[in-house]
Structures are given as C-alpha cells and as structure tokens.
Design a protein around this nucleic acid. Structure first.
Lengths: 329, 329
DNA sequence: TTGTAGGCGTTATCAT
DNA sequence: ATGATAACGCCTACAA
C-alpha cells in the first residue's frame, strides 16, 4: 500500500480512501491510484483492515454442522450461504461428527479467528463453555438441536411431533407389530423422536407390540436388524426408521426378505431418490431451516439484543406408498 | 493481552510466549499467566497474530465449489476437511452455481482475506485472471475441471473415458437406438463426456442411431425429454444420462412409461439410494478426489515448487441392473 | 480534498 | 528466562 501511495504520488490515506470507495477523492487522483494498484498487483488486506476498524466486522460466520458431506447439513449450509451472500458474509464450515471434543476445539478456533457469529448444530450435551463468549457479545444460533446450559437463538424441528406423526401414520393403517430403529440415544433429536413414537403408541395403539432398536449409526446396522426381525417368528408389519441412512438399510433388508410390498416403512428425513423408491418420509425442510438460521443471525449482526428466539420449522409427512401399506390380516 | 500482562505482572511478550507455547518460560510464571487469561476471559486474536508473523499462514483455505449443497461438491468438501483437520486448517467454502462472475468476485474476496490457498471447481472458461496471484505465490488446486490460460495443480476424472465406458456398455449389450442426455455444453466436463460417447459409438456401433439432448439442467427437463422420446415412433432402447440429477428425471419418465424393465439406463455420478433403484452408473470417487486435492494443496503449502501436477482419479462402472437390460429386438 | 499521527493486537529482534 | 521496542498493514481522528 505504501508502494502504491508513492507510485501514485499520494499519501497512504488517499489509497485507503480509493480502496474503500470513500467519499472525498478527486476522480483524477482516484484514477491515478487505481493504475498504481494494478501496476503493482496490490491486494487489499482485509485481515489488517478488520483489525483496525472499530465497528467493522470481518464478515465471516463460523458454521459447525454434523457432517458437511450429508444432505441435511449441506442443505442447511447451502441455504445459509444464499442468505449471506448479499451481505458479503463468508462461511467457515466444519463437521463435528457427534464428537463433543471436536465441537469445543473448533469453537475455540473460530473464536480466535474472530468470526462475527457462530452457527452450531451441537454435538455436546451442554454448552456452558460458550457462556463467556456469549456474554462478550458473540452471536450464536443453534440449528436442529436446542442449547443447554445457555440461552441463545435456535432453529429446530419438532422431533417429538415428527416421531408422533410417523407412528400415528402406521398405527392408523392398522399396524400393531412395529419395529422402530433409531440413532444414538445420546443425541437429543433421536430421543425426542422416540418419545414422540411412544406417545403416539400410547394414544393410538396401547395394545401394539413395539420394539425399539437404538444406537444404530450405519445403514448396515439397520439392514442387519431388520433382516433378523424379518426372519424371526413374529416379524413386524411396519418399520419406522428415525434417521435417513437407517431407512436405506431397512429398505435393503425388506427387499432382501421379499417384503417391500407387504411391510410398511416410514423414514425420517428425505433422500434424493426417495420418490423413485416410493419411500414415505417425514420431511424436514432444510432450505427453510437454513433461511431461518440466517434471518436470526443477520438480525443479531445488525445489533438486535432482544431475548433469544426459538424458531420451530414445520415438517411434513410425504406419502409415497411404502408407509401406506396395510397389515396382512 | 495488555490487561493479562499487567494482571499477571509480566510483560506482553511473556503472555505471547505462554499463548503460543514457546520455550523459555518458568512453570510458575506460565501458571500465573494462565490464571490471568482465564480470569479475564482473554481470547488470542489469530488475525492480529497472522498479521505480525512473518512465515505464519492464516491456516485457511478458500474452497469454491459448484454447489456445496449437492452430493459431489459436498463430498469433496468433506474429504478435504478430513485431510485438513490434522493441520488445523479451516475451510472457507462457497458455491459458484456455474456463474463465472461469482467465481471472480469470490476469488477476489478470498485473496483479500489472505487465504493460504485456493481450491476451485471453476465456472469460468478461462482463469487468466488468477495469473498475478499465482505469480505472487498463491497456491491453487483445480478440481473436476482443468485450468485454462494458466497452469496449476488439478485433480480431475477422465470424463471422456467415462462417457466412452457408459456408451460402450450399452453398445456391447446390443443397443442401437440410444438417447444421450447432458448438461450445459458450455461446461467442459459435459463436453468431454459427450465426446467420449461419440468415440465409443464410432468404435462399437457406427450403425447406431444416437440422439443427443443437451443443455439440460434440471431433473424435470430430463423427465420431459425422455417422456417425449418414449411416446415417439422410435423410442430409444437405451438412455445414457451424463449427470446425476438427469438420471433421476430419466428414471421417473421410464417408470411413467412402464419401460423401466425394457429400456437400459446408465447414469453418471452415484446417488445415495441408487443401489435400491438398481441404477447402473459411472461412479466418481469423491472421497479420493477430495483426498488428492488435499494432498496436492498441503504439499504446496509446505513449499513444494515443482511443476504443476495433474492427477486423474479413476472412475468405475457400477452394474446394478438398469444398464444391463438388453434390447428387445 | 488531502495528509499526519497514532494505534488495532500481536510477534521479532535485541537487550538484559 | 524475561522485557522493551518496533513493526505488520491498515484505518480513525483530526489537522491542513
């Protein structure tokens, strides 16, 4: 910048003015500076600029998701990006993979990098560790899971209601032998979905035999469980998978057992090809979720200091056939 | 930091030493400083640190993909992240959506933010605009598409060979009336895949009637095209879709026409549920691609200055049934 | 309209 | 082993 100034025969401050499009600069001078900039391949240093600026933020958000490679996380990221682009806000994204330690390490890193705000799909059970930073004015918005130990903005879906809706759907179709597959019960969303299922069972089928198969992380695990159930004495007439990759495993097992057309299946979370497989699912609107997160965060960045807001995005049950199969008898 | 120093009764430099785990500090002093840091909720400012450091990079990579929400881009991002995490390197990710202007704007922004390197899945036809930054020592690695107008590291797949393999597969099965659906031909990868198809046709079925349907961006468009073809006089006996979302559309149209079991379909790029639909595809290994990108970039960050390297990751044809259907004749 | 002085939070250099 | 001082690249405040 100094070189640019001397080449253009002006002061440092004038170059700064040109770079930042600030008001009082004669067109002729501006032109001269621009030429010097190009000639020297000068690049404005945002890091230094942000260091000196008082109010000016760095225009970066830290985004911690479970897995930027899966469709839910990456959908949220994409929606967030679309909402941030007009504001020239960049996104620093990383995956937590349900590892609490990684969450704490990454939050620390992002705070050190002086991000303007944090979007977190937490892997930890409690987030008290964030208290000091929040007090210091760091805006945070939680996605998909509620904050615990602190109170900050959040955008979630009603997982309990989702589990309830899925269960009610198959119970209403007459099913009374139901298998429920779920993720790690240490994950809040998994627990809530299970709760919802139980509450629907209590309401619509207290007589139903419902077996719960928990802590299933991979598609293969779901496939094995359903495979075993289908070859048992009393195979279920309906299966509910409370996480998308479990649906894939269940579907494979049912196909293997020749039961795709006789056993009902309702999944949680949509899939790219789900319509082609005829999979009935509880769909969470990732685009809406991401957009809501952005809305909350942007308002905080603009200085909103009202009480934390908790937005709940509606899900919907998408009927595609697999969930509408009725029990044999 | 100044406050920490005075509270601990030491100099600024000593605090700096503690924060950075530098050598000569007495355990007692270190302890005292640590306490002061916690007491004051002091946070190390990486931005300022990087500004002052001579050799120290900011440990951030700019990553420009086509769409962080689609499975190919997000898979690459995820693999990249896994390789960067051990090095404490963060990722600034954004989507280009095939918009050349956005690419130039975002590159500028990332350069201003002083990222240590750029990973780009380009939307532009030529990238001469990067020349100055490259000369200045900015490492760049291209993904999925070759650089034009500059010479930098790249990790691509052999799209021409992929198109060739897909076409050979259906030609070898005896098909002679084939429909080929592709993305915008302004996209290099789309052109190369088409070229590959043509070359296989020349080799294995010069007598074949092959119709090309280009510039299809959405699933719906593919569905319409295949729907029309199927209701025409001479419906194709095989369909090749050169992009994953086109496969979904084609599949829907074939199902609609009751032709899923009579018309062969080979797609490009894998899908989460593709095995369940029995879709034969040319699979690109995103994890390998991302890992190779990281390998090249990390070696550049460590100072490698040899000639640009061009890695080609092998694809594979995954037979799942849809591509192995033989023509009726 | 333009320039000067000082400092943002940190680290490098050189002393002590 | 610790500290004083200058400087990284830029911007704010104020003066000219």
């Amino acid at each position: 910048m100094r070189e640019v100034a001397s080449l253009a025969g002006v002061s440092l401050k004038t170059v700064s003015r040109v770079v930042n499009d600030e008001a009082p600069v004669t067109p002729a001078v501006r032109e001269r500076v621009q030429r010097a900039i190009e000639q020297l391949d000068y690049r404005h240093n945002l890091a230094a600029s942000n260091l000196r600026r008082r109010t000016g933020r760095a225009r970066v958000l830290g985004v911690l998701l479970q897995d930027v490679g899966n469709s839910f996380s990456s959908g949220v990221l994409r929606a967030l990006e679309d909402a941030c682009r007009p504001h020239q806000i960049a996104l620093l994204a990383a995956s937590l993979d349900e590892e609490p330690d990684r969450e704490r390490v990454l939050v620390n890193d992002l705070v050190s990098r002086r991000v303007d705000g944090l979007v977190i799909m937490p892997a930890t059970e409690r987030q008290d560790y964030l208290a000091a930073d929040l007090r210091a004015g760091l805006p945070a918005v939680f996605v998909d899971r509620h904050p615990h130990g602190i109170d900050v903005d959040s955008v979630t879906v009603d997982n309990s209601q989702g589990g309830y809706d899925a269960a009610r759907h198959v119970l209403a179709a007459g099913h009374r032998r139901i298998a429920v597959l779920s993720d790690l019960v240490t994950i809040e969303t998994a627990r809530l979905r299970i709760e919802g299922v139980k509450s629907a069972v209590g309401e619509f089928g207290p007589d139903a035999e419902v077996s719960f198969h928990e802590d299933l992380r991979e598609s293969d695990a779901a496939e094995r469980v359903v495979g075993q159930l289908m070859s048992g004495d009393q195979p279920p007439t309906a299966v509910i998978t409370l996480r998308n990759i479990l649906s894939a495993g269940a579907l494979r097992a049912l196909r293997e057992a020749g039961a795709v057309d006789s056993v009902a299946l309702v999944g949680y979370d949509d899939f790219p090809l789900a319509d082609l497989v005829g999979l009935t699912v509880i769909r969470q609107n990732v685009a809406t979720i991401g957009a809501e997160v952005a809305r909350l965060m942007l308002s905080r960045l603009e200085g909103a200091t009202d009480a934390p807001r908790h937005v709940v995005v509606q899900h919907e049950l998408v009927e595609r056939g697999s969930g509408e199969i009725r029990p044999a008898d």
